[in-house]
Nucleic acid binder design. Structure first.
Length: 863
RNA sequence: GCCGGAGUGGUGAAAUUGGUAAACGCAGUGGACUCAAAAUCCACCGGCUUCACGGCCUUGUCGGUUCAAUUCCGACCUCCGGUACCA
């Protein structure tokens, strides 16, 4: 009776063995080439989901592959353990965020272990532990001392009923998600990191990140958004005030017929004060202050503004122009004021049409013909200057420089650069985060907590408020402190916590010395391991997390803690794991097992009503379109789960979940298992064929060639593209070819070739299905884990083919094919192609125009 | 809205540098084995057309470049991700 493939028995066996043998332990070894591989650590939300399985499987394959290539591999794992869901769970289940988080970590760690990932668990970190955030607080104080962390006022979403701040996610249709109260914008003092100091450097280095997907660096470049232009001072009519505007188009200055200020601009209320417009302006500012002012919504609002009653003077024309406050101007960007040129900017054009303001053409097209009266849209292109005094007739790109120089000469303007990137606001009015290590004293102002008093420990015995607000401001034992500078006993501790993106901006360095008690990390560890050679994670992090990490690394470099600027040499952004959603009219979103599927329709198991089968979107708990990896592990085991995740799609693409494919992956492993067992029996004592390919013949030679082709394909597909789906296809083809042999017939030559093919299949699959491979490897008589075996190398000579297939096209259409010796010259190939019967039929008596011969591939005959 | 990406058979996908569109799977159909079933093995499997050889069409839509376009260029449509307090 043949032994069946039983993952339930094999997988725990190998997981134990790997752990006992310390197979994944990494040590600094300067004699060896290092490879630091890291996947984005998970937020401990409760259970591992398919997105994690996919991400970590990709990483594990690379880790194991690099190890087999002989590199010193560091492959750590940890927990992004602070964050809002812990607080929400605490409120709804009455459990403490800490308890909830640590329970989730325990569950998820066990799940990751069951998947057989090659993590070095000794390096595990959890960002909610004081020994981790202590060093974050330490860095915060360093940054404060350098002026890199500073305070300014900023708006937050505020719910008056719950008296709490709401995250953008907690705002649904401009109202609080808990109570439905309309959300108001409230201004608070908050901490900011000066990422804008590094805007240019972050931008310039985008082009040097050769190992990053171009789409990610493009998105980062656009996010940073450098604009070159000029700042221009506009004097006010009848007052000494000056309004400074930023423009990227100083060439259009003569065409500026009005001006717009951000509603928050300090001059808005001042200018209208005492005028008949005062009331309307106040109402407008008030209205805007209730609106969400994020870049997402701002472009969606209908352009709206109000006249302040004041005029400024266009410095070129000397004409009075009205000053408006407008909802599409952002205070954070540029100077919070723009000169409006309706003829050459679409937003200004729309605004001018709406409020009946003058439109003046100052840049005409080469052909001329722009007319302010008849224009239906702004002309934003380059052209020839008109209506612009001494600059008339110049090309607009030349005038841009000339006018800027003119402004500098007259001292009313200068060249200026503006970035779209804003400073990073890190204050969160929340409980479950790292406390900001600052103290507010009435006499000394803002004072850092002394370094020796760190960490400022987040009090774990706090009770969460049902409104969702942070309990920290209500905890006197936490809040009340003595000022470390003057001894004033009435000082107040900062009760805000840090944005969780702060923790994830340096965890990759912490992995290098996870237990370090004297600093963020040991320099020699970081010097050896960093930068990360390969980072793998979801595309959704393409901007924020990755940009913040790049910024933090620069800060660490400037403090002298590290010697490099860029933390991640190569980046792989995997696509999301998606699934259709199911929604019942009465019961809302349903889990897959709460609905009865009937072909294209489905009904709710609770009420029997029809269920709406929704769009295929990113798997998420709130939409309940999830697949529980536990179920797959239970039914098929880790290897099948891993195999399917990789086979279904290339990593960078989205993966739309289907249950059917999993079965096929399991079937494939069984197919390999069966041929392995019969080969092992058949080839006992026979060494794998290692000789000259030319000495083999027929099917044996074909298999030998296929084996080397497969090694080549698999190696380049992993090395260059991480396309594991084609890696698996290639392995399947090799296995299929092994199945064409009749093992009943005796053939010692075949047996040794077959043995080599089996060894190859198992080695090539081992990073993907490690338990399975180690088990077969052991059955083949090996005593060491397959992970410690060298990755196979292909033999160039074995790839040589004698005959190639040539296809023949007539006018680009496929008409015939033939095989020919692979070293035949172009002329021979051409003759053969023209002689082909079918080809002749299509050429008929038409004259030949051209014949294109592509060696070893194709002939195209043009008639 | 803005920025980035994707779209190929019934279905997941492949085609790496512009050179045979659909490799390898899933689902399906037929056959072998079996008392029977499961499992397994073998064969077929884009559409229309043809007794057949074959022909015509087909990579979201429309147009362009080229001897040749899934691949390059332009316009558009749909979907997905990000949009600064979800992580």
């Amino acid at each position: 009776m043949e032994e069946k493939y039983d993952p339930k028995q094999i997988e725990p066996k190998w997981q134990d063995r790997w752990e006992k043998e310390n197979l994944f332990k990494a040590h600094v070894d300067k004699a060896k080439k290092k490879y630091y591989l890291m996947e984005m650590f998970p937020y401990p939300s409760g259970n591992i989901h398919m997105g994690h399985v996919r991400n970590y499987t990709i990483g594990d394959v690379v880790a194991r592959y690099k190890k087999m290539q002989g590199l010193n591999v560091l492959h750590p794992m940890g927990w992004d353990a602070f964050g809002m869901p812990a607080e929400n769970a605490a409120i709804s289940n009455n459990t403490h965020p800490a308890k909830w988080t640590y329970n989730n970590i325990a569950t998820m760690r066990a799940q990751l272990k069951k998947l057989g990932f090659s993590y070095e668990w000794d390096r595990e970190i959890a960002t909610c532990k004081p020994e981790y955030y202590k060093w974050e607080q330490w860095l915060f104080i360093k940054m404060f001392e350098k002026g890199m962390a500073y305070r300014k006022k900023a708006f937050v979403n505020w719910c008056d009923t719950c008296t709490t701040v709401l995250a953008n996610e907690q705002v649904e249709a401009d109202a609080c998600w808990r109570c439905g109260q309309p959300v108001r914008q409230k201004e608070l003092d908050q901490w900011f990191f000066k990422i804008t100091d590094y805007a240019d450097d972050l931008l310039v280095h985008c082009d040097k990140l050769g190992g990053w997907p171009e789409k990610v660096t493009t998105m980062q470049k656009n996010w940073i958004g450098k604009s070159v232009g000029a700042e221009v001072d506009f004097k006010m009519d009848q007052s000494d005030e000056v309004i400074r505007v930023f423009t990227t188009r100083p060439d259009t200055l003569f065409g500026s017929t009005f001006m717009c200020l951000a509603p928050e601009h300090p001059l808005v209320l001042k200018l209208s004060s005492g005028k008949i417009q005062e009331k309307a302006v106040k109402a407008f500012v008030e209205k805007i202050s209730t609106q969400d002012r994020t870049s997402k919504s701002i472009e969606n609002y209908e352009k709206e503004g109000v006249f302040t009653g004041a005029y400024s003077i266009n410095p070129m024309t000397g004409k009075k122009i009205p000053v408006y406050a407008a909802n599409f101007i952002l205070m954070e960007y540029g100077t919070g004021a723009v000169m409006s040129v309706p003829a050459h900017d679409q937003r200004d054009f729309d605004f001018a049409k709406k409020y009946g303001l003058e439109i003046k053409v100052v840049v005409n097209t080469e052909k001329g013909g722009l007319d302010a009266e008849t224009m239906t849209e702004a002309y934003a292109g380059e052209g020839i200057m008109v209506n612009s005094g001494q600059f008339d007739g110049m090309k607009s790109n030349v005038a841009l420089e000339a006018i800027t120089d003119f402004l500098e000469e007259k001292n009313i303007g200068k060249k200026a650069v503006t970035f779209r990137l804003k400073d990073w606001g890190i204050s969160r009015q929340r409980y479950w985060g790292a406390p900001i290590p600052m103290i507010h004293c009435k006499t000394c102002g803002v004072v850092p907590v002394p370094m020796e008093s760190l960490p400022v420990v987040l009090p774990e015995d706090a009770e969460l408020l049902s409104s969702g607000g942070s309990p920290l401001p209500h905890l006197d034992f936490f809040k009340k402190v003595t000022c470390p500078k003057c001894g004033n006993p009435d000082a107040r501790r900062d009760t805000d916590t840090m944005d969780t993106f702060v923790e994830s901006s340096w965890y990759f360095e912490r992995y290098c010395s996870p237990g370090c008690g004297t600093g963020m990390f040991e320099k020699e560890d970081v010097d050896y391991w960093m930068p990360v050679d390969q980072y793998i994670g979801g595309v959704e992090h393409a901007i924020l997390h990755l940009l913040y990490s790049r910024y933090f690394t620069r800060v660490l470099k400037d403090i002298g803690l590290v010697d490099f600027k860029e933390p991640f040499t190569r980046l792989l952004t995997q696509g999301m794991v998606n699934k259709e959603t199911l929604k019942c009219a009465t019961h809302g979103y349903l889990f897959p097992d709460e609905a009865e599927r009937k072909g294209d329709a489905a009904s709710c198991k609770k009420c029997g009503k029809d269920v709406e089968i929704g769009r295929v979107i990113k798997m998420s708990k709130s939409k309940k379109n999830v697949v529980d990896p536990n179920v797959l592990l239970e039914q098929y085991g880790a290897d099948t789960t891993r195999l399917f995740c990789l086979f279904a799609a290339p990593p960078e693409k989205g993966l739309d979940w289907s249950d059917e494919g999993v079965e096929g992956s399991f079937r494939f492993l069984n197919r390999v298992w069966r041929i392995a067992l019969s080969c092992i029996d058949l080839t006992k004592g026979i060494p794998p064929y290692k000789g000259d390919a030319g000495k083999l013949s027929g099917a044996n030679r074909e298999l030998f060639r296929k084996m080397h082709q497969t090694i080549q394909k698999v190696t380049t597909d992993i090395e260059e593209r991480f396309h594991f789906n084609t890696v698996i296809s290639a392995a399947m083809e090799l296995v299929n070819q092994m199945y064409t042999f009749d093992l009943e017939k005796k053939d010692p030559e075949r047996d040794s070739v077959l043995k080599g093919a089996l060894e190859t299949v198992v080695l090539l699959l081992s990073p993907i299905v490690p338990h399975f491979s180690d088990e077969i490897w052991e059955k083949m008589g090996n005593t060491e884990s397959i992970l410690l075996t060298q990755w196979p190398v292909y033999d160039e000579n074995a790839l040589v083919v004698d005959e190639v297939l040539i296809v023949v096209q007539v006018n680009g259409k496929l008409r015939g094919r033939f095989t020919i010796n692979s070293d035949a010259d172009d002329n021979t190939i051409k003759e053969r192609a023209l002689a082909d019967e079918l080809v002749q039929k299509f050429i008929a008596d038409k004259p030949l125009k051209k014949v294109i011969v592509i060696k070893n591939k194709l002939v195209n005959i043009v008639v």
